[in-house]
Simulated scan of single mutants.
Amino acid sequence: MPDPVSAVLFDLDGTLVRYRRPPDALLQGAFESVGTGQLFPIEAYYDRFDEFAECTDSMAELRRECFAALCSARGHDPGLGRRVADAYAATRDHRNVEYLAGARRVLDQFSEQYSIGIVTNGSRDAQRQKLESAGVATRADTVVFAGHDTPAKPAPEPFSRALDDLGVPPEETIHVGDSVASDVAGANAAGLTSVLLVSDGNETAATDGETADHVIHSLPELRALPWVERL
């Protein structure tokens, strides 16, 4: 018999919601608006996001400092990176998000059966807009802004904070996310059961010695896992 489950934690970006306008298109447009070619790819921004999340207080500040560092590392004026970040911010609406396929229904069903937590890396101001716009905030019993309330994932602290808020032990908790490096590694470190969502060509089920307990390719597949009572 699988262990009983009392709570389900979810990552936010790429797990429950995504931007309607892809970030790579916004970045390309931002470079064009300041009159330069694309000096770094969107993946470089993602690679250093968590580094700047822990030392900045807003998404705008995070992006400005990250873009400045990315430009500087490539031999360009860091001020150019900040101008690109400002151009990016002028067209990014954090409320313009949509649920991934099946995510709204899964969240609605699970919120009737389990305590729900959101554990997300990212700036509090931007993440709150996404949560409120999509209606995720009304379905969650707690939200942890990792990198602000606690160290960023994959540190175990954000998961522990969510468990404390919900009053449940790790062995009765599942975490669902789309990143091996932050979601799976962090959940494993905190003693939770980890579920990796692999979609749109994202990461495989194991890397750097971290392996997910379960792998799914869409959120509705959660309902078929052995710990889920039939919904």
Rank of each mutant, 00 (worst) to 15 (best):
V143C: 06
E157R: 07
R21G: 05
G177R: 02
T120C: 00
A30W: 01
S33L: 01
Q38T: 15
G147I: 04
A155S: 15
Q127S: 04
F31E: 06
P158G: 08
S194H: 03
G186R: 04
V17C: 03
R18P: 03
R64Q: 13
A44Y: 00
D13M: 01
T91H: 07
C66S: 13
G102I: 06
Q113D: 06
L12Y: 10
I174Q: 10
P158W: 05
T211M: 08
V180A: 03
P220C: 04
V143P: 05
C66N: 15
G81E: 08
I174E: 09
R82W: 09
L225N: 10
E32S: 07
G191N: 06
S6N: 10
A206D: 08
S199K: 15
L225S: 05
H148M: 07
D164V: 07
Y114H: 11
L80P: 05
R104L: 15
S111C: 14
K130I: 07
G191H: 04
D164C: 01
P23C: 07
R161M: 03
F67I: 14
L166Q: 12
C66D: 11
S160V: 07
Q38W: 03
C71K: 13
N96E: 15
F145S: 01
E65T: 13
M59A: 15
L26G: 02
E203H: 00
L166E: 12
A69D: 13
L16N: 02
V180E: 02
Q127N: 09
D13N: 03
P169A: 12
Y19W: 04
E43H: 01
A30S: 12
D165E: 07
T204P: 04
D50E: 11
F10H: 00
V198Y: 09
P78M: 15
L131K: 10
H175G: 04
P41G: 13
V136K: 07
A181E: 01
G122Y: 11
G81K: 08
Q127H: 07
A181T: 04
E171F: 09
R124G: 03
L9S: 04
M59Q: 14
L26W: 00
A73F: 00
G81I: 14
V5I: 15
Q129K: 05
L225A: 09
M1V: 13
L166A: 13
S123M: 14
V34G: 02
V168G: 07
E54L: 04
A73I: 10
Q129T: 09
K153V: 03
D50I: 05
A205P: 06
A73W: 05
H217A: 03
A90Y: 01
I42R: 08
P78Y: 14
